[in-house]
Design a protein around this nucleic acid. Sequence first.
RNA 1: CGGGGCAUAGCGCAGCCUGGUAGCGCACCUGCUUUGGGAGCAGGUGGUCGCAGGUUCAAAUCCUGCUGCCCCGACCA
Length: 425
Amino acid sequence: MKASQLILGTQRENPADAEIISHQLMIRAGLVRQVSSGIYNWLPLGKKILQKVENIIRKEMDVAGGQEILMPMVQPASLWEDSGRIDQYGQELLVFLDRHENKFCLGPTHEEIITDLCKNLLTSYKQLPVTLYQIQTKFRDEIRPRFGVMRSREFLMKDAYSFDLDKDGLDRSYAIMKETYIKIFDNLGLDYRVVKADSGAIGGSDSEEFHVLADSGEDLLAFSDKSEYAINAELLTELQEGQDAYSLDGKPSPDGKGLLRLKKGIEVGHIFKLGKKYSQTLNLRIQGENSDIHPEMGCYGIGASRIVAAAIEQNHDEKGIIWPKALAPFEVAIVEVNPKKKEEISIQCSDIYNLLKENDIEVLWDDREKRPGVKFHDMEVIGTPITVIIGERTLETGEIEIKKRLDEKPQLVSHQDLISAIKTN
RNA sequence: CGGGGCAUAGCGCAGCCUGGUAGCGCACCUGCUUUGGGAGCAGGUGGUCGCAGGUUCAAAUCCUGCUGCCCCGACCA
């Protein structure tokens, strides 16, 4: 893509009302713009990144046998009355009337809808086990939205629901999803932890959370430095009333192995064993071998839009974002330096641009009529992993300058080594 | 919901105290000169000063009410 044709929307100054770094950088890099409290527009660059997150999730969900569907954002409130959650969820559930004065709500999650759907869809135990998922907008009317898309009211989420004949089946489906989540977060290239968690308003028995480690996280995690022990600090039974969880840092781990470490995390994924909670209250029955059964359900969420913010919290410097390779909106930026000096500069840019595209490398050619410094700064705030610099200096030598986002200085490579130099990065 | 703060051009801000023709920097447009790390000069575009009411000859400025947004807390998948 040529930068002259892209609505970039980069800004030089931090917005006054953005407090945390990911929020500031998302606005400065032209990823999002605020519409209202907790409600955002996603600009071309931001949407591109969001799409990368979605595709990484989608790929592993499909590998795990998940089947993608799309459920509505607007849901009949009556389903929430049936499940009993209309009161439990409280004001976070945005309820409104349609023109016939029927009560509807904006879906904050989809257990009710999926269970209702499966009452018609699943008729025999032979269809089990099955996992259905969607990537879709959720709306939760948060008391206090904050930190940009980190805690917004409207956000993009992947939610999956598994249906099994019995508890053993649920255990298997849950284990598959946990493995899938580990692959997804590995592929995203983020530093994360899986911890035991509280199942909260969703309900059910076992649940685990996936947290991206970052100092700005809203959750405190406790884990052993020697074992698999890891738990959301709010569940620590070792804590006395009023005791600060941090005081346990360095103390022996509750499982007797190693020492406890405490770190802040951003919750980006949560998996639950729901059991029969919804299949019973909403009366989802499936024909079993002998008689009807209420299937065992699990549900599995990933905050797609929150991952974008969390990735930035974890990967940035004073210049801007440093994207993990998997999330970068463009893998390579070409900075065209002073093309008016020699027409060969633009020609070489064009050649390299086409070469990269032929090699399936996503490239942004900064062909804007801007001074070099502006382009360098923009590419750094956007956080492209590699910048190719084409200018008068290197025209004659035949070598090409490439600069990695984290390197101080560029390196020179020959024309024929360019692709391998980029791909081995 | 409790406490605090803010609201003036796309962004960052000044002006308000002491009422008198709406400003600055960045961005944007035109031209010239520049050009390897956020250029210079000249010209230009863009505003119901959050909304409503009041005081006044006159309100961005003073008064009242409202709304929106941000931060801390409570709460939260």
